[in-house]
Amino acid sequence: MGLLDIFRNRSQDPSAKMAKERLQILIAHERAQGQNRAPHYLPEMQKEILEVIRKYVHVEDDAVKFEVEHNEQFELFELNITLPEKGEAGDRPD
């Protein structure tokens, strides 16, 4: 460390602080994703639920959204169905 560095270092924003903040955000995000790895039966269940719904209304594949959320105490399974607007496709498919 030379004479100039003594002054330079004081005025610089410490980069370790940046590293820590970036890591905290990133790792929180990655851990959440890791935990959200859906249970193995989810695809099968999705398919069956979709079949049941289609007995009554016609919905597109992308009108049904499944999400699994983890809390400390429980898991939340969220099912979101956007029904078609009246007049569109409508009622029972057959």
Binding site: N9, Q12, P14, S15, A16, K17, A19, K20, L23, Q24, I27
Partner: peptide
Amino acid sequence: GEMLSVEDMLEI
């Protein structure tokens, strides 16, 4: 302040 400290790493 150029390197993560032991405390930083343990916290993360």
